[in-house]
Amino acid sequence: MKIKGQQTLTTPREQVWEALLDPGVLARALPGCQALDPVGENHYKIRMKLALAAVQGLFEGKILLQDVQPPNNYKLHIEGAGKVGFVNGEGHFHLEKLSDVETVVHYEGDVRIGGMIASVGQRLMDMTSKMMIRKFFVSLKEILSEQ
């Protein structure tokens, strides 16, 4: 599943960059994230409990940040698996400076879903991924506004 979009934040680019690479911020902003523990440089173990209405799934996996080019670009590699299936994906984030106080986050990626959730949840995949992205940016904006 291809994912592509952009979000404009009223925060200077450097600050957005720091937030996006801060495990503490990610842990709060990633929907359902229960734990994000560093295991190396730009390498984290993650536990997420995804909940959507009555649907719940526990996923464990890892996050890798690659090709990190502050404050412009990085690649996010994510792998997670649980009883209901697995999710693997790569995303490319590009931060565009719109003004001193405005930043556009461009994201583009490919998510591969497997196992049971892939075979039963087709109808809900697209909206779920879009909703998770929305939630992520809502939380991110909230965190940034606190700073």
Binding site: A53, A54, V55, Q56, G57, K83, V84, M116, I117, V120
Partner: peptide, 21 residues
């Protein structure tokens, strides 16, 4: 706990164990 009304959405996801109330 989860509310069961007509069960047309809840029961299928429970049977898939996507929901374990």
């Amino acid at each position: 706990a989860k509310i069961l009304a007509g069960g047309q959405s809840l029961i299928p996801i429970m049977k898939l164990r996507l929901s374990i109330p």
